[in-house]
Structure formats: structure tokens, C-alpha cells
Amino acid sequence: MNARFPAGAAALLLVAVLTACGPASDDSGNAGGSPSPSAGASDGPVETGTPSPSPSPTAKGVALPTDCRAILSDDVLAQLEGTPLNDAAFGPSGVGTDGTLTCVWADPRADTTRLVTTISAMNRGPALDMLNALADTEGFACFTPDGGTRCEKTWPNTQYPVTDGRTLFWRDDIMIDTRYSNLSPSGYTSSIVAHIFD
């Protein structure tokens, strides 16, 4: 699944794929997206200890999720067992005022082991720009599973002997953006995709 494409070929592939994923197919009524963690709105997300608001529908009608556990399969949750979710030590998490869901799986006592996922609305244009830039300038491998576009890359942590990485999945105006270090449950992104789109 980690096929490598030359930068130019990956960019052309993304243009073709994302163009095909445009609003022409409206029968599912699905839409939504999420920027990268640094591209969020100025208002930070609220803590998950407060009641979750109703899911925010995207332009195409797909509701953004509001529960970090509900979007994962039992198998993935079992792999995360014992890892704290949305500990206050890591700052704002949960559902933001714009509907973005931020899930932080990490123990504040650990130096590097963590997984942070942001799910929010992102239109095709900004998504295309982001994914093309990652493929062209940062060496991300991109492919087209589950009716969307997925880009991913792993690298050695600069301080510890563990693997860091980032996986992004875009479909129907929803971006699922996960950054991780030494914590990469098998089937994690696929589980989220199945929950949101199936």
C-alpha cells in the first residue's frame, strides 16, 4: 500500500482523482472535510468532557462525526486500549465550534507515543492543493482506495527509535488527517472511513 510515484506523476494522479471526486456524483448526499491541525479555525475545539453538539453536515450532507470512539471498530479500539483519549494536557480536543473533531490518543507520561486525528470539512480545491503539495514536496505516496484519495508517509523519529507518520484521506469534502508517533493501530483510518461514508 506504500507505492511510490514520482512527484509529477503523483500530482497528475491527484488532479485526475480529485476532479473525478467532485460534486458530479451527488446521489450519496455526502460531504465534509477537515483541514490539517494547523489549518483549523481560530476558535479552538471544546473539550470532550462537555456534551457533544449535533453533527455538523457538510455542503454535500455528510455529518462530521462528534465522538472519537464511535468512529472506530472494536478491533481498533482494542489496539488503543489503555491509551488515554483527549487528555487535557494536550490542549483543546473534541468537537470544535466549526464542527471539526479532534481526537488525541496519548498518555501525557509518554515522551513520544501519540496519535492525533482531525476530521473536518475541506472543499476539493484546498484538498487538491494540500495533497499535491505533500506528494510533490514531501514525498508522500498517494493512492485511491474507498472512493477517495489517501496520502501517507512514515519516517524515523529524530529523537527516539520509533516511527512517526502522517496519513490523510479525502473524500466528498471531508478530510481525515492523522499524525502519529509510535502509535499506528492496524486499520485505523479505514475504520474511520467506513464509519463516515458507509
Rank of each mutant, 00 (worst) to 15 (best):
M130T: 10
A11V: 15
D75V: 11
W155Y: 12
S191K: 05
D98P: 03
T112P: 00
G125T: 14
S191Q: 09
Y160H: 13
L183P: 11
D87R: 00
W105C: 03
L13T: 07
G22I: 01
N123P: 06
T112H: 09
A10G: 15
P185T: 12
G61F: 03
T83N: 08
A24Y: 12
V17Q: 07
A59F: 07
T102N: 10
S42Y: 08
T48Y: 00
L128N: 02
G8M: 00
N132V: 10
Y180A: 05
T144D: 13
Y188R: 04
A127C: 08
A141E: 14
T158I: 03
T112C: 09
T58G: 15
F197N: 07
L134C: 03
V95H: 03
T117W: 00
T66R: 03
R171F: 01
D129W: 00
A39K: 04
T158Y: 02
T118I: 02
A88W: 00
S120Y: 02
T58S: 14
W155Q: 05
D129F: 01
A24D: 14
T144M: 10
D111W: 02
L12I: 07
G139T: 10
A121N: 09
S184G: 00
C103L: 08
G61N: 06
C142Y: 07
P45S: 15
G94V: 05
P185C: 10
A121G: 12
S54F: 02
G96P: 08
G44T: 14
V193H: 04
G187R: 02
Y188Q: 03
L18V: 05
P92S: 13
A106T: 11
A141M: 08
N30A: 12
T66H: 02
T58V: 06
I71F: 01
I174T: 15
A41H: 09
V162N: 07
G32P: 10
C21L: 15
L14P: 03
P35A: 09
D43Y: 01
S36C: 04
T97E: 12
N123W: 05
P126W: 04
G49F: 10
T48R: 02
W105L: 01
